[in-house]
Amino acid sequence: MGGKVTCTLGEVKNRADFIIYWGGNPADCHPLHFSRYTLIPKGKHVPEGRKGRTMVLVDVRETPSAKHADILLQVKPGKDFEVITTLRALVKNQPVDAARVAETGLTLEQLQDFVDRMKNARFGVLFFGMGLSMTRGKHMNSAAALALVAELNAYTKFVSMPMRGHGNVTGADVVMRWTTGFPFGVSMSRGYPRFNPGEFSTIDVLVRGDNDATLVLGADPGATMPQPAIDHLARTPTIVLDPKVTHTSRLARVHITTATTGISAPGTVYRMDEIPLPLKPILESPYPTDEEVVHRILEKVKEKPAWTPASYKEVPCA
């Protein structure tokens, strides 16, 4: 099992009559989501707009998104995986133990009703946030949610989409994949890409203290990463490219102020559905763009002697 059954956001706008948000609070975190893509717009096949759509919010607490929901399903913290597994069983008409279901904070009737609505939807979509993917069960929760949606396609049209974070995290992921073959957690230390999340992911490298310098671009790890990682950033040469002062820039040896991408520097941002949008600058900036700075660093690096074999080399399969 694995994979992802998804679509671009316009498909949701044009077709979705059944929308689930699970473990996320879009009203606060993705404020344009309801009005631009999911609930409010009049879609090609949902001409009634909001009236033509049902929204179910699944979360451990009542967030500001709840007042936009038609149905709120409040799950006990840490019980998401159990709920999804029960739903998968109910989708396939398999028996489930009502007493065990009760431990999730929801009743069997609620879940059966949920499944009936999912199966009767014309076009259903499940958006899931960090309240699902970063709580107890983590990637197992995501995998279960993706599997539920894949299996629902035996009955009706159903898609899912993780609610990616702010900034251009999707763009970084997309470009890493086409240049190295892998989305993140890539090591180039042998001269070719190797992928091993948990070993080569940024946090792990920093916490182990494996690297002797860090270049930070479009991120503020000093604000979000665990203390040992931040300590390593402070201890070793850290270079930050950022338009503004950040937690990381304060502990860095070098902070190069750059133009803000999208305001005074052009670029491309990938939306959470991996659709690329061009960014057109509206203001001039006295500062260079990130791209210019990286290119200039690269030119200087090229002046140093190469450390890999000079000739092309293909390493046979391991």
Binding site: G3, V5, T6, C7, G10, N14, K44, V159
Partner: peptide
Amino acid sequence: KWGNLDVEN
């Protein structure tokens, strides 16, 4: 594994 990506319109 199954991946599916419908592109609007």
